[in-house]
Computed example of a mutant assay.
Amino acid sequence: MTTAAASAPETTGVGALLREWRGRRRISQLELALRADSSARHISFIETGRARPSQEMVLRLAEHLDVPVRERNALLVAAGYAPAFPETPMDDPAMAALRAGMERLLTGYEPYPALVVDGMYNVQAANRGTTMLLEGIDASLLRPPLNAMRITLHPGGLAPRIRNFLEWRGHLFAQMERQLALLRSAPLRALYEEVRNYPLPEGGRQVASFGEHPPFALPMMIEHDGTVLSFVSTIATFNTPMDVTVSELAVETLLPADPETAARLRKTAR
């Protein structure tokens, strides 16, 4: 009976969290041990709570399990260590170089829309191509902090103008669901539940026709000033971030999906 208790899996603490992450990544204890230059026995002891991992081991396992930076701090705290990664506000002077770099990047992408969002989809920066698309939406949605999900999915936002709203809505929900599978974020969960409960705009169930030539990726087809503009979205993140805030920033660029959209944006910019 004593032996069984000693070998029972840990249900709380860093061992349980690491076991959960290993399960998500679908790798065995042996495979993780080989990646982390350890042994399957040691990994087993950590997961069952029979061994306390060092701070270095926690970070090494987190790296090989591709754990998000915020959750790496949570693993360290569960193991009895201080968080290793700061969470610096975007308006902190230490972020001045980052902010300036993002502004140059967004400006250089004009006249095409581009913006930077944080882990809650709050807009941290945007260029003139993006603000052009915001013309005519409900003023309440433009009060800081601007939230990209609310602006896109709210009936008073872009939703009534998106021709393929159901498809684009499904794409955004899938994106949020992937994040929620990795992060224990109550605010993000609340945002997800909020936008899921928005009513469909009038005509929101229509499915857009792509004509004879299907697009190479799902576009967002949006009406603007009597014309339908078509964009495909790309998202870029920072390599090897050392700060929680930076790790959750995403640069989203909207690339014209057809020559007509590109020409219209260039004309509008002139």
Results as ranks from 00 to 15, higher is better:
Asp92Leu: 04
Thr48Leu: 07
Ala148Asp: 15
Asp91Gly: 04
Leu106Val: 12
Glu87Cys: 10
Asn197Pro: 00
Pro201Tyr: 05
Thr253Pro: 03
Ala36Asn: 00
His154Lys: 03
Met90Lys: 00
Ser247Glu: 00
Asp258Cys: 01
Pro201Leu: 07
Tyr112His: 14
Gly211Trp: 02
Gln206Thr: 08
Arg72Cys: 03
Val69Tyr: 03
Leu98Val: 14
Thr131Met: 15
Ala217Arg: 11
Ala4Ser: 13
Asn239Cys: 09
Glu31Asp: 13
Ile27Phe: 05
Leu218Phe: 03
Ala94Phe: 06
Pro256Arg: 10
Arg150Met: 11
Ala208Trp: 05
Met176His: 00
Arg266Thr: 08
Gln206Trp: 01
Arg22Phe: 11
Arg50Tyr: 03
Arg19Gly: 04
Arg52Asn: 12
Glu135Phe: 08
Met95Arg: 12
Val117Leu: 04
Leu172Ser: 06
His213Cys: 05
Ala174Ser: 15
His154Gln: 05
Thr88Cys: 09
Ala262Asn: 09
Ala16Arg: 11
Pro256Asp: 12
Thr2Asp: 14
Ala269Tyr: 15
Ala62His: 04
Asp37Leu: 06
Val232Pro: 02
Ser54Val: 02
Asn239Pro: 10
Thr253Tyr: 12
Thr131Arg: 14
Gln29Ala: 14
Arg99Gly: 13
Glu47Ala: 07
Leu115Ala: 06
Ile46Arg: 01
Pro199Gln: 07
Asn147Cys: 10
Pro256Gly: 06
Arg270Tyr: 02
Pro259Gly: 00
Glu212Asn: 00
Phe165Ala: 07
Gly15Asn: 10
Ala126Pro: 01
Asp225His: 14
Asp37Met: 03
Ile43Gly: 05
Arg104His: 14
